[in-house]
Design a protein around this nucleic acid. Structure first.
Lengths: 191, 191
DNA sequence: CGGTCTCTTGACGGAGTTCAAAGCTAGTGG
DNA sequence: CCACTAGCTTTGAACTCCGTCAAGAGACCG
């Protein structure tokens, strides 16, 4: 199953066989059931996770006790609480499976050791970061220019398959409004 | 003036003298007056900019013709339209000086050539990306959990100095609301 | 001084929230 | 195979935050 991560890496950089082996060997396989947590608020997040299959959401709980979904993760995405992972502080986020899932995980110590000396893997993660930053940029642009209703429709157009995979209340939270409002949006627009 | 970039790099990684020289020599100095543009919508953004001093805003224009500020940049920040720079497509953003400023710029070709073979500079940019992603993450958390008024007060507390440097209407746009509303917030709270 | 750019103020309207109740659906156990 | 529960979605009425529009007041710069 590490083939999948290998293929992902080869999409972006060209490591030697030994560099690839060293990295893949530093990862370990993990199965996780729907509703279980990879990371819980308050814990130190010492791993970075590569999603083989399944689906996750990361969220935090605001002062009023409401869960706010800040991100989803699906196949071939890296997922972690970066602030906790990089700066070694307690996580403010929860990362929870939204489906039965499988991941590869790598510890901070092992990853740091590899990044200390391997050019191509620095390139790989640099490129991943670039892609995420570009995606986040687009997301912020959408949030700044569209109404809630428009946001929903654009999201459905861009991710028609994904919309089916998570409950509506998570989607509503991710898009920045309440489940009640999402329900009303869906109520309109019946041709 | 390249000392400043050198010091910034040395905060995060330890390049050899020759690696550092090669990188600094690839950058060129540029002065830019208030209101002038580094990047305009529709242009290809072929440079990454390191701000020596001054202040910039990046913004786009939505369908209604309203300017939406998506980011500010000040001393010791790297700035570019990443999507345009990385994927070589026309920029959707404008980057405009908000003060008389000085920058160092590096072209995509030169940067790519250096990143092709220099470990430490991949590390450096990887670390920069990590920091920006963490900051963006926090920003999204704030946007999801605070009202407009709270956003403004938190921003003022975190950046008391910066608030003085840009006109209020830019700040309002950055925080996601109208200048009129910001003015009303300021009107209250005159204890 | 005159014009442009920025900030303020107020009346009104609308997008989205809150709260509460009821309808659905799927899983669970008897 | 049915009954029950728990979680998810829908619906509606009242309410709030913030946007829109319009008019005026400073403030800065040539």
């Amino acid at each position: 199953m590490k083939e999948q991560l290998k293929n992902h890496i080869l999409k972006f950089v060209s490591p030697s066989e030994s560099e690839l082996k060293a990295f893949l060997n530093a990862t370990t396989f993990k199965t996780i059931k729907n509703k279980e947590y990879l990371v819980k608020e308050g814990q130190y997040c010492n791993y970075q996770y590569f999603i083989l299959n399944g689906c996750f959401r990361s969220f935090f709980v605001n002062k009023k006790g409401v869960e706010k979904v800040v991100n989803f993760g699906i196949e071939d995405w890296w997922l972690t609480d970066l602030d906790s992972f990089i700066n070694q502080k307690p996580s403010e986020l929860n990362i929870q499976a939204a489906e039965d899932s499988q991941v590869l995980k790598i510890s901070k110590e092992k990853l740091d050791a590899i990044l200390e000396k391997t050019l191509v893997l620095n390139q790989y993660f640099r490129i991943i970061h670039e892609k995420v930053r570009i995606a986040d940029q687009k997301r912020i642009q959408f949030m700044y220019s569209l109404s809630g209703e428009e946001l929903y429709h654009v999201f459905c157009q861009h991710n028609p398959d994904f919309v089916q995979r998570v409950p509506q209340y998570m989607l509503a939270s991710y898009l920045g409004f309440t489940p009640e409002f999402l329900s009303k949006i869906r109520g309109r627009k019946k041709t």
